[in-house]
């Protein structure tokens, strides 16, 4: 029960949000796909993994993997009807898809527990650790996932595939004229994004051990947007930095309240106002975010 425990909890949440932000960043920052329904991957990952674990008793490693696969598959399904849409319509369609899924989770009580949610979700390797040490292990697990995802995504975005995604973001028609199959590329970006989002969802569910549809309101998506707007689009480090900053901000206002004469009840309302301000300031004065996307100059002799 010390501040260290709070720090560990805080870092775990930063890690989970960082995964979600990286996933969103791949779609928005690289491929230019305005996804307003990012929370759906989080939701699917969390539900898939926790339902498999509680209902079938499958080993948790498989639950995590299946959560990623199902979530990635949903990214694929979501982009089939929407793949020919332009960015703003894409945004509306994704927002709707996320709400549809949340409503399914809320109403199909026989499967998801409906509004009561899923309780008593088992935790990976829980029996190996004492109650005090377990969060530390979980922090290690989340950090490991963040590092692996970071390098995996870096590998993907540095490959020709990543360059193609950026080309779609900059000028889709040009990309088409070069003979690239932009629909397929977008679809692949959604699948990869979905898998990373699903992983974050599974990590979240097995950490808090209780999920309900209330966890997946659209507001979560917009917090993620705030993270990548502040951190910087088009690079993975920016997404992680943004996740950490918004989370620090969210939590620190709880502490400042005691020293400022406002009292914690006024601080609570102020928090939302300040996050809104932060977004406006960044969008108007530093639209590229804190970490600017690196401009890469390619040597024409090396490009085949």
């Amino acid at each position: 029960m010390t501040i260290v425990n709070f720090l560990i909890y805080f870092l775990i949440m930063v890690g989970i949000y960082a995964l979600l932000a990286m996933s969103l960043n791949l779609q928005v920052g690289y491929a230019g796909l305005i996804n307003f329904g990012q929370v759906v991957f989080f939701c699917i990952g969390a539900y898939t993994s926790s339902l498999l674990a509680t209902k079938t008793g499958l080993p948790l490693l498989f639950c995590f993997l299946l959560a990623m696969i199902v979530s990635g598959f949903f990214g694929y399904v979501m982009s089939i009807p929407t793949k020919s849409l332009k960015s703003d319509y894409w945004a509306i369609a994704t927002l709707a898809a996320a709400e549809v899924f949340r409503l399914v989770a809320l109403n199909e009580g026989w499967l998801t527990g409906g509004p009561f949610g899923v309780m008593s979700i088992p935790q990976p390797l829980r029996f190996l650790f004492s109650m005090e040490n377990y969060p530390l292990f979980y922090l290690f697990l989340v950090t490991l996932c963040v590092i692996i995802v970071f390098f995996a995504l870096a590998l993907i975005t540095d490959s020709p595939f990543g360059r193609d995604l950026k080309a779609i973001r900059e000028e889709e028609d040009l990309c088409l004229s070069l003979g690239k199959n932009t629909r397929k590329l977008k679809l692949e970006a959604m699948v990869v994004g979905g898998m990373v989002g699903g992983l974050a969802g599974a990590l979240f569910a097995h950490y808090v051990t209780f999920i309900s549809p209330e966890n997946f309101w659209p507001i979560e998506t917009f917090l993620l947007w705030a993270m990548i707007i502040v951190g910087g689009r088009g690079n993975h480090a920016g997404a992680i930095l943004g996740a950490a900053l918004i989370q620090i901000f969210n939590v620190s206002t709880r502490f400042i309240g005691e020293y400022v004469s406002l009292g914690s009840d006024s601080m609570a309302s102020l928090r939302m106002v300040i996050i809104g301000f932060l977004i406006i300031i960044f969008v108007s004065y530093r639209p590229e975010g804190i970490i600017k996307e690196k401009k890469k100059v390619y040597d024409p002799r090396n490009i085949r």
Binding site: M13, S212, E214, N215, W217, I219, R254, S264, M267, A268
Partner: peptide
């Protein structure tokens, strides 16, 4: 006093 924002997280 702490705010729950009526939001589980």
């Amino acid at each position: 006093v702490e705010d729950t924002e009526t939001r589980p997280a």
